[in-house]
Design a protein around this nucleic acid. Structure first.
Lengths: 228, 228
DNA sequence: ATAATATGATAGTAATACTATTATTTTTGC
DNA sequence: GCAAAAATAATAGTATTACTATCATATTAT
């Protein structure tokens, strides 16, 4: 699996960037260090000037790759979802049983991220923290509909749709497959956030995982007649 | 109920503001029009200068009420949760049956907001849109732990705790009452957001509500042994 | 070796996010 | 009704942000 992953390029919608950051050394440095810097100081305090200082490069050079920091965030989160989608498909593809497949899928999208050395310039553990803390800001904007029309969120949508489909495969009569799928994906990020900052608002801690919570939630919900 | 609500003052932690905006005419104008303006142009584009122009008042006067726009957002969302908490307690308090109580609670926290004329300067329908679109930004910051220590999010936490307690009253053996409670509250906002911007990612639309989705989800989950 | 391309350096602009000071208006207390 | 206090407005000023434009230099490709 390690070897196979190594050869996969995660393709990001080219409307998100001015120049493909994966096409040059400087571009890859921008990606690598923007992840670290956003994690360190937060998205609000992050600027291209600070990133330029950090990588010993000029602010104006960074603008040649991304129009602004919002687009960079959209790129980074898209890359993350692309990376996760690959894992999702790889891990579930060969499973013949619908329940096994869904269970594995929930595990993949809710588990704690481990380092993956396939992409040397991207630290997936740090990127996962950015997705937890900052990714909502990529779509909670006034421009969301236009950006959605331009395909900025296709990968994310595809993951939710894949999950929803797996849910339907387990229980064709369930009325809310898409809502449940989107709840799992956003909800898992939220449970990780709560674990770190509002531990009283979650039961997830060192001994109980978001994976366990969501797996139980989903399998208790499916294949049951509504008792409400 | 209308009459009773009229007399209730929603109390906000006084560390959030410099001067209580509910104590003066200008303060209330700030609240009223900041809600409208944030809804119109989004939190990123919103500035105290623009708000000052809108209410025919000076930027510097607004700074005497709030240190910055982030604190104003924390105030507005706190007010919203205070308003919702009152409705939650009022609607569920007299119900003797634990399941009825929880069902009503889910309804209150997930339903579409209707105008409430008890607070003349605050439009709850517009404020609800702000909570859906912007409230995550109030806690997705580097300062969240300090602000949490200062009690900025107490009302929100209390609502989640109340919900969690009601869940436990229905099923004392359920292992994730707090996670489920926080999932309902954040998840409902997210489903409303998806309905407006990513309809393919939710099953909630004009004919099916987030209330129905979450009610079914919760009652299917509780009082069942884990089948995972 | 030349041309094309990428990057760097510098400068400049409008807006943001404030702080400080002083003037004016409004409120209140007697 | 008047003085004192409090609130608000007006103005100015600063550092930073979020860019754009231009020109110089370095790197790469033909």
């Amino acid at each position: 699996m390690e070897r196979l992953l190594q050869s996969i390029k995660i393709t990001i919608n080219d409307k998100i960037f001015v120049k493909d950051p994966d096409s040059s050394e400087l571009g890859r440095r921008i990606l690598e260090h923007s992840i670290v810097l956003i994690d360190e100081i937060g998205f609000e305090a992050f600027t291209f000037k600070k990133l330029g200082d950090r990588i010993g490069s000029n602010e104006s050079s960074i603008y040649r790759y991304f129009e602004n920091k919002h687009k960079l965030l959209v790129y980074l989160t898209s890359w993350y979802w692309g990376w996760l989608e690959y894992q999702l498909v790889f891990a579930t593809n060969s499973l013949p049983d619908a329940s096994d497949k869904l269970k594995k899928a929930i595990e993949v999208v809710t588990r704690t991220v481990k380092e993956d050395n396939s992409y040397s310039h991207i630290n997936e553990v740090v990127l996962n923290r950015i997705v937890i803390n900052e990714s909502s800001k990529s779509f909670l904007t006034k421009e969301v509909d236009e950006e959605n029309r331009n395909g900025y969120f296709v990968i994310y949508k595809r993951i939710v749709e894949r999950l929803a489909e797996m849910i339907t495969q387990v229980d064709a009569g369930y009325a809310f497959p898409s809502s449940l799928a989107s709840t799992i994906l956003e909800g898992a990020l939220h449970q990780y956030f709560l674990k770190d900052h509002f531990p009283a608002l979650t039961d997830c801690d060192s001994s109980t995982s978001p994976t366990k919570y969501f797996t139980e939630l989903v399998f208790k919900t499916l294949n049951q007649n509504s008792n409400v």
